[in-house]
Design a protein around this nucleic acid. Structure first.
Length: 984
RNA sequence: GCGGAUGUGGUGAAAUUGGUAGACAUGCUAGACUUAGGAUCUAGUGCCGCGAGGCGUGUGGGUUCGAGUCCCUCCAUCCGCACCA
């Protein structure tokens, strides 16, 4: 009986499902291991081979940990709210709830075929009301909090209110946008609306008018990470800046913690750097410049180079800066207005592509240099961003290239404050050197000058040390349908939250759920979207005139809301009293290994860290970082195949001389014949098809070369780059035309190829289902790992899959005789087989411990090759091998495990074989390898040998050698377990 | 421009601490076997050379008894950020 993977895999899939083999229960006796993969958006296209790559790696690791005796949590769910799910629904003209449901079912069906050890009883879907009830609840917690800089954590807003009532806000050290200072008396004199507005300036999620990324095509605002190069990440639509009243998350309060926390994470430097860059910390000083003829106005700037303050020769404000209108002199009013207008018209994208062009406009106003009293002109320019720092810069052309360019363009004098540095060709931007022309800073090195400058500014009360972050608060509302509704209603413009016991606020059914270009949220179409404060329920617009009925928030939450805490819900998915039970989260703690794509670096991974820190501040959980170790799997690219259609120009009939319009032949040339294919040859073929054809080729490349165009063909017609012409012809139908395929000398049709993203429209999508059907899930699992390093992007290529499949067949044969009966010998295994086994145990263990999967597959192949050569069918050896293999090929492992006489379905709970070094040790020996002026010995010594023992060994070699050559060695380098070099 | 990563046979790749470069697989060549298969087995396969031998890890240099691995220079490719003051 051959290796019948279909029967085996089906059998074990059923067994696992029926017996809930992978159901996980908390067990304080065992150490926990939490392995997680980023849960997918259930898109309509289904899974292609790229998706399961990370899941397989995660599954292998989870199963490995289980064999190592850990209590393993390995869950799976769906990120089913948000833009991608909704866009798909819109494209197919269906309700997102329906597409989500069918897509989830399709995903599940595909996932089930691959043999994952997910505990499906813990499945979560972010669009499920029992789940988003808690997303809404967490939102409320954030709303009811402010960030206290003294204790460096989030605290209840109620505490803050108490302080306001007793001493006002002057002593509060919190992250806020509040522009006024007030005493306790003043606070008490404010009306409710005013008090709420002020609290809003402190809340960790707040409603405010802010400049946001508005995407008309998607009909919604987007967070900064959802905008890439000025267009939307989803769909690539233009994005403009718009002033809108939106919910935001005060993630900036956590900037420093998000930055510091990276230090202890086991993530790649690439991802850490992306996050560091995104947070964009810069340390410097803020300085006040008094505006001339405007006694009470001053311009605050942020600079990282206070040491160059004597090099300031002009100021530049962002065109949107508040003071621009106020300070502009009458003389320059019209020019400034004109400039503001043109700058405002530029889209984000234009502004980016226009970086090289320096533009600006003088306002006619001046500031006074705070240290030397010089008169400094104020300009506006769009290279200064309103959203960063204070929206104003002190321009130091000698030390900043942009300032230098600006000064050159507008003929502003450049003052050099660097000693012995030539700035005639460009600014000197190095942070080294000596300062000059700067009064009390003269002669100081840059670093010292920065410190002294800040000290002096602080002493004179015109500036202070300051840290700025590039990170912006995250816009939290979306004018879309498919997301969590806010548990918020508005009582005379004051946002109020709905009490916990009435959550979840379920997403209402609406007739029109499509987004609109003017940003009217679809929830405005809901029949009942008013909150009845008295009866605590939703009600219709008809009751809106009653005093206790108020309009609900129409926006929904962004896609990242649900995904920012899902890893916690897996621990306790059915809990109706809390988002996660305290005892559960105390047991499972944070994720030990997180596998997913690197594209979430500035989105999901940052938001999830932010929410985790927040939840920790409130004591709901006791860790601050959600994902301790992370691996970013590389994308699997598709290999698109091309055929080349010859351009035959206008065909004419020889007999009638008329153009032939019906059924002209389509002629395709194989890739390797393209270069030699000539016009004459083409005409020859044409005449064979129909002697009546003549052709006037309309395009020629060089002498005798024909013109052609590439056409993609579906990969189901192509194998190892060769087109199955018969199959393709059979399915090719276009106006009864018969395609002609010009093959190469070997009578094969070779396709051209290109590596591209896998996409339906490229006909290059490889589904895992086809491969499971053809080779089985175990082959697919091992092959995906064998393909190359997990982190690397790589093209999908089935060329090597036979090798892995043959390995499993070979393994099967190891257990069976030629009749197909199980054939094993009992008793003591021989030393060579033991050595092979223990070499493999060590290799697999080492590879798993450093998260390397591809060489582990090779190790299995070597092991089986060696055991086959040894004709080893020893039961003890093979039993251990089966356990080793379980994480990689669970189906065949279960089958063989049972055949070895073990209880069915128990291999995943077997014990990982103990590595015993002794089996690797054979007689130590050493021999000379070459005599090129140096003696060089190869020594095969056990790796655990002490240095002294190795030295003894070497001495023995040396003596033999000295005896042979009559020389004494100069130097002996000894490394245990390595080759020994002896220099003569 | 700044930051990160990568560069090894025809191909995917290995080489864990500086220690026989190319494991394993695929492809190719030759052969064996066979109720013919995507089967199995044997031999060969980095380059040059009949051979002994020489040369080989993007380029050029350095450290070392010894470098794919460490240091410096340059080149190429990919990714991220990009008027961030």
């Amino acid at each position: 009986m051959d290796y019948d993977f279909k029967a085996i895999e089906q059998k074990w899939r059923k067994h696992w499902a029926k017996n809930s083999t992978y159901k996980t229960v908390e067990n304080p006796e065992k150490s926990k291991y939490y392995g997680l993969t980023m849960f997918p958006y259930p898109s309509g296209a289904g899974l292609h081979v790229g998706h399961p790559l990370g899941y397989i790696a995660s599954d292998i690791y989870a199963r490995y940990k289980r064999l190592k005796g850990f209590n393993v949590l390995h869950p799976m769910g769906y990120d089913s709210f948000g833009l991608p799910a909704e866009q798909y629904a819109i494209q197919t003209g269906q309700h997102p709830a329906i597409t989500t449901k069918t897509n989830v079912e399709r995903y599940r069906e595909q996932l089930d075929k691959i043999g994952f050890s997910f505990d499906w009883s813990r499945e979560v879907r972010t669009s499920d009301p029992s789940y988003y009830k808690w997303t809404q609840w967490i939102f409320k917690q954030i709303f009811e909090s402010y960030y206290c800089n003294d204790s460096n954590q989030a605290r209840p807003i109620a505490e803050l209110k108490q302080v306001f009532e007793t001493e006002g806000n002057s002593k509060i050290n919190a992250v806020h946008d509040c522009e006024i200072e007030f005493s306790a008396e003043e606070w008490k004199s404010f009306d409710a609306k005013k008090q709420n507005d002020i609290l809003m300036d402190y809340r960790l999620t707040y409603l405010a008018d802010s400049w946001v990324n508005w995407c008309p095509a998607l009909g919604t605002v987007l967070a900064n990470d959802e905008v890439v190069n000025g267009v939307s990440e989803r769909g690539g639509h233009p994005v403009e800046q718009k002033l809108m009243r939106q919910w935001s998350m005060r993630i900036t309060a956590y900037a420093e913690r998000l930055l510091q926390g990276l230090e202890d994470l086991d993530w790649t430097d690439a991802i850490k750097d992306i996050q560091r860059n995104w947070i964009g910390k810069s340390v410097g000083a803020s300085v006040d410049f008094k505006v001339e003829e405007h006694e009470n106005e001053s311009i605050e700037v942020f600079t990282t180079r206070p040491d160059t303050i004597f090099g300031v020769s002009f100021m530049v404000l962002a065109p949107e800066h508040d003071l621009v209108d106020q300070i502009t002199t009458d003389e320059y009013k019209s020019e400034v207005e004109e400039y503001k207008k043109t700058a405002g018209l530029k889209s984000e994208r234009d502004r980016m592509s226009d970086v090289k062009n320096v533009t600006g406009q003088f306002t006619g106003a001046y500031v006074v240099h705070p240290l030397n009293g010089e008169k400094i002109p104020i300009w506006i320019g769009d290279y200064v961003l309103a959203s960063y720092g204070t929206g104003a810069v002190m321009a130091v052309p000698c030390g900043d290239q942009r300032d230098w360019d600006f000064a050159k363009k507008f003929d502003i004098p450049i003052k050099n404050v660097f000693k012995n540095v030539d700035i005639s060709e460009g600014a000197y931007t190095e942070k080294t050197g000596t300062i000059t022309n700067s009064e009390f800073l003269d002669g100081l090195k840059v670093n010292k000058a920065i410190k002294l400058a800040i000290h002096e500014l602080e002493k004179q009360g015109i500036g202070k040390k300051q840290t700025n972050y590039r990170l912006r608060d995250a816009v939290f509302s979306r004018q879309r349908y498919w997301g969590e509704p806010f548990p918020v209603y508005y009582d005379n413009g004051v946002a109020k939250t709905i009490a916990d016991e009435h959550l979840p606020i379920e997403l209402p059914e609406v007739d029109k759920y499509l987004p609109t270009e003017d940003g009217q949220p679809p929830l405005g179409n809901a029949a009942e979207w008013y909150w009845d404060e008295k009866n605590n329920c939703l009600t219709s617009k008809d009751n809106a005139d009653q005093p206790h009925v108020h309009p609900m928030e129409l926006n929904t939450m962004p896609g990242w809301a649900g995904s920012s805490w899902y890893f916690l819900r897996y621990m306790d998915p059915k809990n109706e009293k809390a988002f996660v039970g305290k005892e559960k989260v105390d047991y499972w703690k944070n994720v030990d290994l997180y596998i997913g794509g690197a594209e979430h670096a500035t989105g999901h991974l940052l938001y999830a860290r932010f929410w985790t820190m927040f939840l920790k501040d409130h004591g709901y959980i006791n860790f601050e970082e959600p994902f301790q170790k992370m691996i970013n799997q590389g994308m699997i690219l598709g290999r698109s195949s091309f055929v080349y259609r010859v351009h035959h120009g206008i065909l004419t009939s020889k007999s009638t001389g008329k153009q032939i319009k019906n059924n002209p032949p389509f002629v395709y040339v194989s890739f390797d014949r393209l270069k030699q294919f000539s016009e004459n040859e083409y005409l020859d073929i044409l005449s064979k098809i129909n002697p009546d054809f003549t052709s006037i080729p309309f395009q020629k490349f060089g002498k005798g070369e024909i013109s052609y165009s590439p056409h993609r063909v579906g990969i189901n017609f192509v194998e190892n780059d060769f087109l199955n012409v018969d199959k393709y012809q059979a399915e090719w139908s276009f106006q009864n035309m018969i395609p002609v395929f010009i093959k190469n000398e070997n009578r094969e049709f070779l396709c051209g190829h290109e590596i591209e993203k896998m996409s339906k429209s490229y006909f290059n999508v490889q589904t895992p289902d086809d491969l499971v059907e053809k080779y089985g899930a175990d082959t697919l699992r091992m092959y995906e790992m064998f393909l190359g390093p997990l982190e690397q992007a790589k093209p999908w290529d089935t060329k090597g899959i036979n090798g892995v499949h043959n390995f499993l067949r070979k393994l099967w044969r190891l257990f069976h005789d030629s009749e197909g009966n199980i054939a094993l010998s009992e008793g003591e295994p021989d030393a060579k087989a033991l050595k092979t086994l223990h070499k493999t145990i060590k290799k697999i263990q080492d590879d798993m411990d450093r998260y390397v999967f591809n060489t582990a597959v090779s190790a299995f192949m070597i092991c089986v090759n060696e055991l086959t050569d040894l004709k080893c069918n020893n039961k003890a050896i093979l039993q251990d091998l089966v356990i080793l293999l379980t994480p990689y090929a669970p189906h065949i492992a279960e089958e063989l495990w049972t055949k070895l006489g073990n209880k069915a379905g128990t291999v995943s709970d077997a014990q990982f074989p103990e590595f015993n070094e002794e089996y690797l040790v054979e007689n130590t020996f050493a021999y000379p390898v070459s005599f090129n002026g140096k003696m060089r010995f190869k020594a095969e010594l056990p790796t655990n040998m002490s240095k002294e023992d190795v030295e003894k060994e070497v001495l023995a070699m040396e003596k033999a050698q000295q005896y042979l050559e009559g020389k004494a060695p100069k130097k002996v380098i000894v490394v245990p377990g390595r080759i020994v070099n002896v220099v003569v």
